[in-house]
Amino acid sequence: MLEVKNICYDAGEFSLKSVSFRVEKGDYFILLGESGAGKSMLLETIAGLVHPDSGSLVLEGNDITRARIQNRKIGLVFQDHAVFPHMTVYENISYSLHGKKINNREKKARVNGIAELLSISGLLERRPATLSGGELQRVALARTLIQRPKILLLDEPLASLDSRIKSELRSLLRKIHHQGQTILHVTHDYEEALSLGNRIAVIHQGSVIQEGTPEEVFRNPKSEFVAHFTGARNFFRAHGTGENNNSIALLENTLPVTLLPLVNTPDGFILIRSEDILLSNEPFDSSAANNFEGTVAEIIPGISGTDVVVNTGISLHALVTPESVSRLEITEGKKIWIHFKATAVKFIPA
């Protein structure tokens, strides 16, 4: 579908260093990276707003590296949506239909169709200045989708939106993806990446340093940066069991974990910060809802503490001080108890 091959671009402050990855048709591909990693520049390069110093871009078998922007059939939605302030929502959405051999009736039908999909039918006569951030983002999506792009590029589309709007837009993006739209989405938010992507590439200082499924990237971070950036070693696919309003979820179909009730969807990912896991030699009575016995599989000393890997059927990482390791006499193969609160379990719907 889209092959990005060894793209290099030096813009002084930012640079792209031989970036390569491949997005397949129907993918929801996430480019995950910190601010300043070169994500937006890469999207602008793919869209044709910036020409790379070297490398090539191939879309459906055609080299588009030097193709004109208007001939690429690539849609780009900017972080700040860049809706045209002097036009109505209708004029914004129909902007790309100008010059195409479409009569007014068909034009109207297409605008209405896309407006309905994005739930903005009631806004068509409004001016952008009267719209909220979420509505503007929907208009920007509609304006881009109406030209039926081969691939939709999204530049931090959920940044600077409040959490309710974010969740609505996530559902909307899933819906658009399920209708067959190939999407390349850049974000700095790993929750967004897990919630939406079926493939993730991590970009750092202008280079792609890891690529794979969410499980591959989060479970086996290939570098310290990825491990740190993705934020959690304890990362699992989870499924609500239906018990107690879905307040018990099964991790990797193995370990039942208590968490805050799953209101909307029983499927997703679970993250438990290794700093939130306690270790003890004996079970003890506390407010922690999750208490499991396991075997110490590995002890990994690090700068920010010692990572103790405990096998409880699945491997859980606990970050403790070296003093605790010696006080509890933790050694590999030893039986040990781990404890964490239901509120320490972070659920990300998928």
Partner: peptide, 12 residues
Amino acid sequence: RTEKAALTLGAT
């Protein structure tokens, strides 16, 4: 960005 958006929407 507004101009760039228009370019990506196929405008010359």
